[in-house]
Design a protein around this nucleic acid. Structure first.
Lengths: 295, 295
DNA sequence: CGCGGGTGATAAACGCGGCTTATGATCGCA
DNA sequence: TGCGATCATAAGCCGCGTTTATCACCCGCG
């Protein structure tokens, strides 16, 4: 059994058709026919039923494909781990964050890191809602500021920052000139949300259920800050955000008002479990030092 | 990158020496030299430092080896999943358990399963302490009675049986003729335990800490029932066990006395998450039916 | 009813790539 | 200084996965 065969298998299952899978893999159709047959012989199970319309996975095939795609993913992780170390040698550190990240701390950490490691180039990488943790796991970044709640499996992390939440409103909104609002006062306002993040993340941000037991009024969806702010400025909905967003994404057509009765946002600094490189560790140290002295 | 290379990599790391690794893999030493070099070139990182005494992993090498061994394990799982289905087709179901399993339920379940699936051969597989869950995960059995507490990650399960615990004593022991004893009355008796199972399992069985806060007196270790009973019969220590063991492992040189103040043993029926075969599902159904009617 | 367009399977030939054996280069140590 | 480890290199072989070309089958449609 070889990785190549497993990759073929997954592709065949995805396309449901040897010809199209072959095209996607840039090989000829007989190559897949041959590989599939070989795998079936080796495993001693029929994996796909051949039909005139294509191929369809058998019971065994479904399970094997699932296991195979996991194996392929793990193999790709090997490459990702190596790439991280290669980048380490090249003196590059990729720091993930979303929207305003950890506010002021983000910049201060970067500045201090640059002071301690002058030869290292820091590459900030912005992600869409709730994507940082996954990016960390599959090696797209070496370290990241993760907004909680988040799925931190496979990661090590430390909470390094908290900040109150605010509500974003278009200018002229009935609540726009208040010094603070309760979350229940926004119950009737359509609220921005996202399909990208898991349910738990969305509910936490939307404060669902509200203190009075009601459910938020779900408004339009969006994938990232810019899309969200566009919609809010347009008057299509309101949004909740950490207070730092008021200064990092200041716009003339938006107003930010503190939410008086919701949990603050907690931001964790996270890095891959076990696979942390020397530079990532250095960055973690910097942030640890900054947060110790500031509390 | 191919699985073969990853397997080689793991072996090289284990043996710390190309020659010995080559021997273990039944290939020549240059083959490993070649494969390692190829992988290093492809990944762009040096993985092992070559020394006159052998090879030693670099920082990057350590991480890559870890990721590689995980990938290899996943690939082996593909084969295990396939083997499960092959066995399904061959009408064989392997049921894992340890010691007295789930007592009477074990036999009843097997009998009822045989009635419903006459053509299927059931193969009971006995495991050493705490090994069932792992056996389930790596495909050595299709379904198993697991003694809790246990690590059930990657498994689906349902608690199907509970039974009180008893203490096993050699005949003539000072507590041997009691109708019941408190666990604290055994505080001064050396207690059998095992190095095979995780800490949590051992502590649960040993009732550590005891109700009075003390720690058990640790006696000899053992890997399975027979070894344990030998030691107890010999007078080297006492042991804790589920009450069914009194009837399933009756010996003239042993006495079993109920423990009056400890949690009963809970036994779960478990099967691989997602990879359950038709036969395994059938067995789960049988046990579900039996436990529903008996409660 | 037969033909066209889709499917996967098979055949034959090619050539890459990883294997082997044989040998070299280096180091540590007695 | 020479022996016995180590890993690296060289040269040749050959298995195996690839390719192109073709076949066999099924289905829908004129």
């Amino acid at each position: 059994m070889e990785l190549r065969q497993l990759r073929y298998l997954v592709a065949i299952d995805e396309h449901g058709n040897l010809g199209r899978a072959a095209k996607a893999l840039f090989v000829s159709q007989p190559a897949l026919s041959y590989a599939l047959k070989g795998l079936e012989t080796e495993l001693g199970v029929r994996l796909f039923e051949r039909t005139p319309g294509g191929v369809v996975a058998t019971d065994a095939g479904r399970d094997v494909v699932r296991a195979a795609s996991e194996a392929v993913r793990r193999a790709d992780l090997v490459a990702a781990v190596a790439a991280r170390h290669r980048r380490d040698a090249a003196r590059v550190l990729r720091v993930g964050f979303e929207a305003s990240g950890a506010g002021e701390l983000t910049r201060r950490a970067r500045a201090e890191f640059a002071r301690r490691h002058p030869a290292v180039r820091v590459e900030p990488k912005r992600f869409d809602w709730g994507e940082e943790a996954e990016a960390l796991r599959d090696g797209r970044v070496d370290v990241a500021f993760v907004w909680l709640p988040a799925d931190l499996t496979g990661l090590r992390s430390a909470v390094v920052h908290t900040e109150p939440r605010v509500v974003g409103l278009p200018i002229g909104h009935r609540l726009a000139y208040r010094a603070g609002v309760s979350v229940v006062e926004t119950n009737d306002e359509p609220l921005m949300w996202t399909k990208r993040a898991p349910r738990r993340w969305v509910d936490w941000w939307a404060v669902n259920p509200r203190p009075d037991g009601s459910e938020p009024l779900w408004g339009p969806t969006n994938d990232n800050v810019e899309e969200m702010l566009e919609q809010v400025a347009e008057g299509a909905a309101i949004c909740f955000a950490p207070s730092s967003m008021a200064s990092y994404y200041a716009r003339p057509d938006l107003v930010w008002v503190p939410l008086t009765d919701v949990e603050p946002l907690r931001v964790a600094l996270a890095w891959p479990d076990g696979a942390g490189t020397a530079l990532a560790r250095g960055f973690v140290e910097v942030v640890a030092d900054l947060t110790v002295t500031e509390t």
